[in-house]
Amino acid sequence: MGYALSLTVAMAVLWLMLSGHYDSTLLLSLGAGSAIFASALAWRLHILDGETSPYHKLWRFFVYWPWLLWEVIKANIIVIRTILQPDMVLTPRMVRVKTMPKTDMGRALFANSITLTPGTVSVDLDADEVIVHAVLKELTGKEGFADMAARCARACGEKDPVK
């Protein structure tokens, strides 16, 4: 029930933001109807759970995202400097990262964070490892991946984060 309610509220906020109509009663009621209808469809599809409606634990991500943003900016500077060198020197590597968060959502967040950081792309994803392609060998440090995995696990509410 909480999932349905938070999904409906999120849909209504999205509708208000996209339409920009606040004065017509007909349009507002149609918007509210469509938000409720979308939630009802999600409930009938049996997909209404913490993955499709994660809004009640979103506050944890607001700790993770600023850190990720800073990492992304740092990695961007490294990759831009590499591209702009007249004598380009690349040291591409394929590495297996074994430290992973335990929940599905944590693993998805971890792989997406690796891909979002320029210089590293997650190429394949398994239950207990990610295969990562990195453009420079400096970007494949084990400590960095372990740190990111621990932060992802914490952002998804795991009690005992990976070491």
Partner: peptide, 8 residues
């Protein structure tokens, strides 16, 4: 990786 720079 170069496309990732643009994306972020």
């Amino acid at each position: 990786h170069a496309a990732g720079v643009t994306d972020t």
